[in-house]
Design a binder for these strands. Sequence first.
DNA 1: GGGCAGGTGTAAT
DNA 2: ATTACACCTGCC
Length: 322
Amino acid sequence: MPAWTLEAAGVHLRRTLDSGQAFRWRWETRNGGPDVATGIVGSHRLRVTQDARGVHLLAPGTPTARDALARYLTLPSPDATRSGGDAPGLHRIEARLAADAVLARVLPRTHGIALLVQDPWEVLISFIVSQNNNIPKITRSIEGLARALGAPLGDGAYAFPSPARLAASHPATLRACHLGYRAPYVREAARRVAEGRLDLDRLRRIPEAEAREALRELPGIGDKVADCVLLFALGHVTTFPVDVWVRRAVERLYFGGRPRPLREIRAFARDRFGPLAGYAQQHLFVYARTHLRNPRGRDTVAVTAPAGASGRARARPGRSRA
DNA sequence: GGGCAGGTGTAAT
DNA sequence: ATTACACCTGCC
């Protein structure tokens, strides 16, 4: 009962936390009640759930934990970008997205995805680890880093390690986290941040393109990882990271399944979605993960079919992620 | 067991 | 300026 509640209008908590932005949330299913998620945000181990009234923070009940959750779930706005002003809210954002005929058919299956406001340092390392990798293994590597180098938070939870701790870590420690060839990338990023050669907070305040360039200076960071950091942590919500899933979705839903060069997909997204590109990307990603798992499938009809034919889900059962 | 997974760097045109 | 290939590792 001592839950503190956040209205979070229009947010689908589970979809949001499972939408590939964050790697530190675990769900437990409870029969008889709503599912509960436990996640590490900064130095807090948060337990949250959602019902019709909103998102409830079950524990801990401290003011700092509340602040951390509130900030985490504050929608980065494409309009008010860095000048303050009114945030549009998720309903309004999705209404605007639905002006796109394809997204209008995607949204019924993906609505409620919020962009989180995460710690840039954690996101940087997490997405370096994500390259040419899969989600379960990324999750284990991040968990391993936290366990080995992060501050203990109680109940077997550990904060994400600081740049200094990671920079000073022993190679064997990183090896035990199964980073593979990404280990040197992680180490170098940690060094640069720890030594102040890369100022992540500064990247919030400069134009997206400049921030991207700065991130790409780091070894092991290309457009995709840089874009993820810009979008998921630095408030540059017009960014459109293109991974294999988003690429698949765009090719399938907008280009009749024809392969397109990466640069074309990026340009297409800019033109088509403008300031809402970041949100559009999340919906396309989640849609692809749940409905386009078969690389050669023909499930484009589910979304691109004429108006009368929509409605019934055409998706195969498919695996859902752990 | 070769191929693939939320890419990137490098060496070839 | 594009295109191919290798790469840690775990899983099928």
